[in-house]
């Protein structure tokens, strides 16, 4: 290959500039959480942790801000439900597409991937429309109030689940394809029953992928905004609460504090995932 020092240097600078570009908004969002000022802007007024722990206005810290804490709580509940459900269905899908033989498999596989490319806003409204139609129909015909079909936590969970499941399915499928079939075969030959093989061979092999996809699902759910906004009720998760605050009150450093907190949280999840993957490699 041609080695041109000027070109190599320029290339390196470009890569560096690119990563600075990637990091810039994250740094800005995190940094102002520690600025002792009422506005998330320069000049730097000195270091403070008030935006996390202070308990009085005007510098109400995030751990004393009840609406933010409630948002965090709802986000946590939603994300837990979404990741449990999507890992379960994703595992079934993985078995279906790697082991199952049935007509139309290719088409169904594409159908499984499609939710990932449907705009989140449209996923949200289409589920909102269906749920409302059913709820209205039931109410008119029988007089029943099916509140869980009105905008609120259950619909948010369903809305996010609808596309997160694609992600978990793809991750778990990729892992299941790597499983050596002869391992299971050997267990069968040794007289193990189907369930026992599943419990002792297959699921332990899948475990890293199950953990990783569960964490990704949790994170994607926690971060989601577009789909959530369409079906959210009075129990607003954290992203929607933050957005409301940004639009109505304007940006205050408490939002930076939440941003910083979330970045740290995602960082820990990322590390957990790296460990889950590493364990799978050493096996």
């Amino acid at each position: 290959m041609i080695k041109n020092p000027v070109f190599t240097l320029a290339y390196r600078c470009y890569i560096l500039a690119f990563f600075l570009f990637l990091a810039a908004p994250l740094a800005a969002a995190g940094m102002f959480a520690f600025n002792d000022s009422l506005f998330p802007a320069l000049p730097w007024q000195g270091f403070t942790l008030d935006w996390f722990f202070n308990d009085t206005e005007p510098k109400l810290g995030m751990f004393h801000d009840r609406r933010l804490l409630r948002g965090l709580y709802y986000s946590f509940i939603i994300a837990s439900c979404v990741s449990l459900m999507s890992v379960f269905v994703g595992t079934c899908n993985a078995f279906l597409f790697t082991r199952g033989q049935f007509p139309g498999k290719g088409v169904l596989y594409i159908l499984m991937v499609v939710p990932l490319v449907i705009p989140g806003v449209i996923l949200g409204i289409s589920i909102l429309v269906l749920a409302s139609t059913i709820a209205n129909g039931v109410e008119e015909a029988y007089g029943w109030e099916w509140d869980f079909l009105r905008p609120g936590l259950p619909l948010v969970v369903l809305g996010q689940f609808s596309f997160v499941t694609t992600i978990t399915s793809l991750v778990i499928t990729a892992r299941l394809q790597k499983l050596d079939f002869s391992l299971e075969e050997a267990a069968f030959n040794l007289g193990a029953k189907r369930l026992r093989v599943l419990r002792t061979i297959t699921l332990p092999f899948l475990k890293p992928a199950l953990i990783a996809s569960g964490l990704v699902a949790f994170l994607v759910s926690f971060e989601n905004f577009n789909t959530t906004l369409m079906v959210v009720g009075s129990e607003a998760p954290l992203t929607v609460t933050m957005f409301d605050r940004m639009v109505k009150v304007g940006s205050t450093p408490v939002l930076n504090a939440v941003s910083f907190f979330l970045m740290i949280g995602s960082g820990i999840l990322a590390l957990a995932m790296v460990f889950a993957q590493r364990n799978s490699k050493s096996e």
Binding site: P25, L26, A29, L219, F222, E223, F225, T239, M242, F243, S259, L262, M263, S266, G267, L269, A270
Partner: peptide, 8 residues
């Protein structure tokens, strides 16, 4: 790893 809201 960071929400679109925070990046924006």
């Amino acid at each position: 790893w960071v929400s679109e809201l925070i990046r924006t």
